[in-house]
Structures are given as structure tokens and as C-alpha cells.
Design a protein around this nucleic acid. Structure first.
Length: 735
DNA sequence: AGCACGCCGACT
DNA sequence: GTCGGCGTGCTC
């Protein structure tokens, strides 16, 4: 009897690879989920053992023996592997790459799956006065000594890393002076899983009901959609459920859309629970990511807070998954393995037989549809906690009005009133930079990117032109490239320009800007947020970043300079996104005692969805928007899969997709629409031509069976090797 | 994706 | 005469 190892090798090939066990192999180590080092072509690869079988489709003579089994115990459980196999099938993505997505880089490279003991910094000196003397002229070292004195057992390295000053230099100084040392002291390490600081305030009835409902479902699969307006206390629900999960000796995974949001939630969890919290996002070093992964996998921590990529992290004793801001499109991976962390989370909960909770103030139409189908249970938090009032909406018809840098006289008056009351105003502008275009006033020449179908964006701060799509940049030209005229003018509005205009209109006001440019440097975002919280800012200008998570209690006016762009777009999800954005930005405003006003500038004050949104709120909008989708047979009332192809050669992508479309149409499948191929909305990006082909059906099964049947043929196509192609199941934007 | 093999142009 | 261009084929 021969034993065949079925291994997922991280290559873009849609199959497992068969190997013989390594020579002199202890068969006890051949467990599914261990890493296996194998010869692959003339390379060395590390794959995951998916199954052990007696059969192989490969000629036995061609089978190679694996080199080594890397783990004594599986890195991934049978449930993990089942989830990954499902994801590979559902997203039609190569299994090896899907499995690789569940590991961290270090683990993929073969690092030992062991948690290195953490280092602790500890004082050595017995006589502290000596230490104080030695550090008289070194304030940082003195401060570090203070900290070390408060922790006689030593300060863990992970805690030191969270300090926002240069502790490293100070530590080196102390070590040089022989006052401190690194040690691995697990002594005095207390772990108390039940430790919990009780909540400071009373829950309202909605919160209690939500918590009771989910608590009642513990120990089995159930999916919940928690719809709660901003400030309604969703986080408190998460905290209480976390406590419940920990009390049952289980682990909880909490997923968020952005790494910007993790520090805040992290702080709330850290202050509430004395148990350790693992953090997992792309901003960490590989060592940190690997450590967080292993701590969850080995049951060292009860709470994992992470972004999209954390959804596959193995859990020793899974208890629940929470995914906050479920409508947010950053849960969808937009390249390579294009999975939706939200949908994977739901499937994972189902396979693990645990509850999953999706939270949002503005649920996606997909999730609301799932509620209507009985797949998710709907929980609502209607009231704002503490009784704060919902903001008032005002539509400003700007037709025929003279605008000053995009600001109408009425909006300027609103801002002026707000400032005179000593309150803060927030202005939402959906573009960073100074102006989205540079145009020649004499000949009409426009600064365009040479590699993309896009205009270059004017950045006044550092006097440069940038392409926001491929990263190209150059200094601002002094003269027109077409006619040498010196009359080059920025056209359109960006955050920088609005910031400048506001500074001129309100010379006494302090204006702060929040966008990717102004917050690029580490710690900048936190600094600006602190300024806003402490009242050192009067007007805030910013992009989407403002809409996410942060709450500004002193803001009583929210202005949105242009809602029209989002109402008239080619993407059918554009209205939904705009309504979510408006609602989210509006949610930043006001607090218990002061009512917020939300002012929307538009040239289409009669737009029906806009009217519904401000009259009936997001729920009313969602209902109306869903009806339009149903009538148009668009998701969630139908399902889509998008083929994309790109190449530097202008013709190849189109030719490839035409072959795909031809093959699909030739099968004359019922209930299937094959739309395209067409050029992508940005047909040229970074010098590459991009096309796409859409499959749509009212039955998921139809799409999957077709793709499944097509893939082997398509992979062999001569046209396929001339392009880079991919399939996007449930695409969230048709770009 | 890598990495080989393989057959045609400008160079130490 | 070779170095190297990227077409095409393979990976258990």
C-alpha cells in the first residue's frame, strides 16, 4: 500500500500535487494541516498537507518524495482546511494560493510555529538612588526607570513598543550603565480569563435585546445583522458579547475594515478586559503578525482584533466572529485572491457552528437581502445611546449660484454661524490634492498621465502633479506643454483647495485637513484627532477618512460639497455607496445636547433617492434602492462574476475575453447573461490595457458550474498566456 | 508565478 | 563566434 500526500503548493495552478512521504518518515506526523517541504520543478516549496490517499492520477514513476514534514502538530485544523477548500472553489482561485493566504509570510517561509518567549526589560540596580543619580541629565532614561519601577516583574517588549517616545535609546543607555537588562521572565505572569471591568453605564433596551439574542444563539451557527445608527452603542454590544464568549472559555475574532480603526477599538478592549488582545493587520511587522497568528492558533489569547486578512487565522477554541462596518468595501480583497472577508466570516461561522455578528449603521443591500431571505436575523439599535438626537438634513440647491471654491454662499453662512457659536464644522470633499486637473487657459491642454487614462492631480502643498492610479509624479510645470502659455489653472476641487479657501474666508478659524496626504506620517492622524477633540480646531476638511469610525462630539455642522458625482455614476452601486457615505459622515455630527445639521450641496435637489434618504433615513433609502435593483435584475437580486484581463499589448485582453465569451455563449446555458467584453472604466492603467467580461445569473449555481466547466479550457488557451487574467466572484466594483 | 529550453539579432 | 531577447512548456 502506497501513501500519497495531497499537497496544496503555493503556485497559481488549480490543483493539488501528489507526493510520496519523505524517506524514513514517522507516519504519525502525516496529519492534514502540517507544512510539507517539497521539491517543485527545480525549486523548493512549502505546501500544506490537505489529504492522505492511496491513489493518484499521476503515473507512480513520476511521483517525487517530499523532503520534510515541518510541523509536529497541524498549523491548520480540519475545519480551517474545509473553509479554505470552500473558498478555493467559491472564488475559483488556486488552492495553493488560498491556503497560503491563511498563513503569515514567516510561516510560508518555513519559520518554526513556536511562540518565542517574550523579552522583558527589568531594572537590575538594587539601590534606586544610584539609578536616579545616574540619570539626572537623561530625562528619557529617568522616565523609563519610573516605568520599570512600576513593573517589578519587568515590562514586556510588546508594551514598550506602544510607547510614543524613543524608549529604545533610553533602554540602551540604561543597559550600558548596567541599570537594566533584558530577561525572559515568565515569573509573576498572571492570566485571568474572567477578569473584566464592568461597563460604566446602563444598556438601553435595544442593546439588551441584541445581546440577549446573540447570547441565546451561542454554541451553534447563527448569523445576525446588527443595524445601529452611529452612536447607538454597537461597540458596547461587542464588548458584552466578548465578555460572554471569554466567560465560556472561548475565543472571539473581531474584524474591522481599516487599520486606522484598530487603535481605538484596541484601547476600548484593553481598558475593559485584563486579558491580552492580539492585533492583526498589514501595518505590523512580519514577526508581530506571526506572533499574533500563533497566539490565536495556540489559544494564548482570547481576543483577536484584525482587518480583512485576519479572517483565516486559526482559532484554538472558536466562540464567535464579529465583523464591524460590514458594508465597507475594504473587506473585499481587490487583487489576487479576491475574497470577501464578510462572506468568508459567515461561511467560517457556519462550518465552526458558532454565531457571527455583522454590524453597520448602513448595511449593504446584500446583507439586508439576506435578512429578508431569513438567512440573517435582524437586530436594531434605533436610539442613539444617551438619547442624542438625529441630525437634520438640508439640501442646498446650488444651481445658478456663484460658488467660491465649490462653497455656496449658503454653506459659507452655515459655517460662519457654527463658528460664531463656538462649535466645529466638518466639510467633506471626496478628492485629495488641490485640484483634480490642471488646464491651460489659452489652448485647453490638460495635464494627463502618460500611462493611465486619467488626469494628473495638482498637489499645491509640495508643488507637484500626481497620478492617483499609478503613482507617477512630476513637478508642477511653469508653462503649458501644448502652447507654452503661462496661464495654467487648477480645475476642480480637492481637499487642499477647500482648506485654503476656508483659511481665507475665515482667517481667525483654525482649519485642519484629514486625508491620506496629511496623515501619511505615523502619528499624524492621532495628533490631528487629538487637536479636534481638545477644541484646537474649528473647521475640519477631509475625505472618506472622516466618515470612518471617528466621532467628533463638538462638530455640529457637516457639509458635503458635492453629492451629485455619486448619484450619477456608471457603477450601479454608486447610489448605495453615496447614501452610506452621507449617512456615515452625518453620523460624525452632534452629541447628546446639541443637534447636528447636515448640509448637502447638489444640482439635483429632486433626485428621488436623495429625497428618500433625507426624509426616511438610510432604511428608507435601502428599501427604495433595493426595488430599483430588483427591477433591473442587479445584485443582490442576481449574481455576478467578472472576468478581467490586462496586458501591455492593446489587443490581447480583448481577444482573450472574446474567446471566453464565445466559449460561454456556445454552451447556451439558461438564465445566463454574458455581457461584454468591454474596456474597463479606466481602460489604460499603468500602461496596461484593461478589459472585462461580466457573467450574470439569478442562480449562483449557474455561474459556478459554467466557470468550473470553462476554467480547464481557458487555462489552456493560447490567448490566455498573453494576458494577465482573473475571475472576480461577487465583484464589488466593476473596475 | 518561476524557471527552463529554444531559436534568432547586436556585441565583448 | 557568443549574450540575451521573450515565446512556450512544465511543475506531482
Amino acid at each position: 500500500m502506497t501513501m500519497i500526500l495531497k499537497i496544496a503548493v503555493p503556485v497559481p495552478l488549480r490543483r493539488l500535487f501528489d507526493y510520496l512521504p519523505p524517506p524514513a518518515c514517522d507516519f504519525g506526523r502525516l496529519r492534514c494541516g502540517v507544512r510539507v517541504e517539497v521539491p517543485f520543478g527545480r525549486r523548493r516549496k512549502i505546501g500544506i498537507l490537505m489529504a492522505v490517499s492511496e491513489e493518484s492520477d499521476i503515473d507512480p514513476g513520476r511521483l517525487k518524495a517530499a523532503w520534510a514534514i515541518l510541523d509536529d502538530t497541524p498549523l491548520l485544523t480540519a475545519e480551517d482546511l474545509r473553509l479554505l477548500s470552500w473558498a478555493s472553489q467559491y472564488y475559483h482561485h488556486p488552492i495553493g494560493e488560498v491556503v497560503a493566504a491563511a498563513l503569515t509570510v514567516l510561516l510560508r517561509k518555513g519559520s518554526a510555529a513556536e511562540l518565542a518567549d517574550e523579552r522583558f526589560l527589568r531594572l537590575v540596580a538594587d539601590d534606586l538612588s544610584v539609578a536616579e543619580q545616574a540619570c539626572k541629565r537623561a530625562p528619557r532614561q529617568a522616565a523609563l526607570i519610573e516605568l520599570l519601577r512600576a513593573h517589578p516583574n519587568g515590562v514586556p517588549h510588546s508594551l514598550l513598543k506602544e510607547l510614543d517616545w524613543d524608549w529604545r535609546g533610553a533602554a540602551d543607555g540604561l543597559i550600558r550603565k548596567g541599570l537594566a537588562c533584558w530577561c525572559e521572565c515568565p515569573a509573576g505572569q498572571e492570566r485571568d480569563d474572567s477578569a473584566f471591568v464592568p461597563p460604566p453605564f446602563q444598556l438601553n433596551a435595544d442593546q439588551q435585546h441584541a445581546i440577549e439574542s446573540v447570547r441565546g444563539a451561542m454554541g451553534a451557527y447563527a448569523a445576525f445583522l446588527l443595524e445601529g445608527v452611529t452612536g447607538s452603542g454597537k461597540t458596547e454590544v461587542y464588548l458584552q458579547l466578548t465578555q460572554e464568549v471569554l466567560a465560556r472559555g472561548k475565543q472571539i475574532m473581531i474584524l474591522l475594515p481599516e487599520i486606522n480603526l484598530t487603535p481605538q477599538l484596541q484601547a476600548r478592549f484593553r481598558s475593559r478586559f485584563s486579558v491580552p488582545v492580539a492585533i492583526f493587520h498589514s501595518g505590523l511587522t512580519e514577526t508581530e503578525r506571526c506572533r499574533a497568528w500563533l497566539r490565536m492558533q495556540q489559544g494564548e489569547v482570547g481576543i483577536l482584533l484584525g482587518t480583512r486578512s485576519a479572517v483565516f487565522t486559526p482559532m484554538k477554541s472558536p466562540g464567535m466572529i464579529i465583523l464591524d462596518e460590514e458594508h465597507d468595501t475594504s473587506f473585499k480583497q481587490q487583487d489576487g485572491f479576491r475574497f470577501s472577508a464578510r462572506d468568508v466570516a459567515v461561511m467560517r461561522a457556519r462550518l465552526l457552528n458558532i454565531p457571527v455578528l455583522l454590524g453597520s449603521a448602513t448595511p449593504s443591500l446584500e446583507s439586508l437581502f439576506n435578512v429578508s431571505q431569513g438567512r440573517y436575523r435582524h437586530l436594531r439599535l434605533a436610539r442613539r445611546a444617551g438619547g442624542a438626537v438625529q441630525p437634520v438634513f438640508r439640501l442646498l440647491d446650488i444651481r445658478g449660484h456663484r460658488l467660491r471654491e465649490g462653497l455656496s454662499p449658503a454653506l459659507i453662512a452655515y459655517i460662519s454661524d457654527t463658528l460664531s457659536r463656538g462649535e466645529q464644522a466638518l466639510l467633506f470633499v471626496n478628492r485629495r490634492g488641490f485640484a483634480p486637473t490642471l488646464i491651460c487657459h489659452d489652448c485647453g491642454w490638460v495635464a494627463r498621465c502618460r500611462r493611465c487614462d486619467a488626469n494628473l492631480v495638482v498637489h499645491a502643498g509640495d508643488g507637484r502633479l500626481r497620478c492617483h492610479h499609478c503613482g507617477f509624479e512630476q513637478s508642477l510645470p511653469g508653462v503649458c506643454a501644448g502652447c507654452s502659455s503661462e496661464d495654467l489653472r487648477p480645475l476642480g476641487l480637492g481637499t487642499e483647495r477647500v482648506e485654503k479657501a476656508l483659511a481665507e474666508l475665515f482667517p481667525d478659524a483654525r482649519v485642519a485637513r484629514i486625508d491620506r496626504d496629511s496623515t501619511r506620517r505615523k502619528g499624524r492622524l492621532e495628533a490631528i484627532l487629538n487637536d479636534i477633540r481638545d477644541g484646537r480646531v474649528d473647521i475640519l476638511v477631509g475625505t472618506q477618512m472622516l466618515a470612518k469610525g471617528h466621532h467628533f462630539p463638538q462638530v455640529t455642522l457637516v457639509g458635503i460639497t458635492d453629492v451629485d458625482a455619486g448619484l450619477y455614476s456608471t457603477d450601479f452601486r454608486s447610489e448605495e455607496r453615496t447614501a452610506q457615505l452621507i449617512t456615515q459622515v452625518a453620523g460624525r455630527a452632534g452629541r447628546e445636547d446639541r443637534m447636528g445639521t447636515v448640509v448637502l450641496q447638489t444640482r439635483h435637489p429632486g433626485h428621488p433617492l436623495l429625497q428618500v434618504l433625507i426624509r426616511d433615513g438610510y432604511s428608507g433609502f435601502a428599501k427604495a434602492c433595493s426595488e430599483e435593483r430588483r427591477a433591473a435584475h442587479l445584485p443582490p437580486f442576481s449574481y455576478q462574476a467578472l472576468w478581467r484581463a490586462e496586458a501591455s499589448d492593446a489587443e490581447a485582453p480583448m481577444r482573450f475575453l472574446e474567446r471566453v465569451a464565445g466559449l460561454a455563449r456556445a454552451r447556451s446555458v439558461a438564465d445566463l447573461a454574458v455581457l461584454g467584453p468591454v474596456p474597463a472604466p479606466m481602460a489604460r492603467r499603468a500602461g496596461r490595457r484593461r478589459y472585462q467580461l461580466l457573467f450574470q445569473s439569478s442562480k449562483r449555481k449557474v455561474l459556478h458550474e459554467l466557470i468550473e466547466a470553462l476554467l480547464p479550457v481557458i487555462s489552456e488557451l493560447a490567448e490566455a498566456r498573453r494576458v494577465r487574467w482573473s475571475i472576480d466572484v461577487d465583484p464589488v466594483d466593476l473596475y
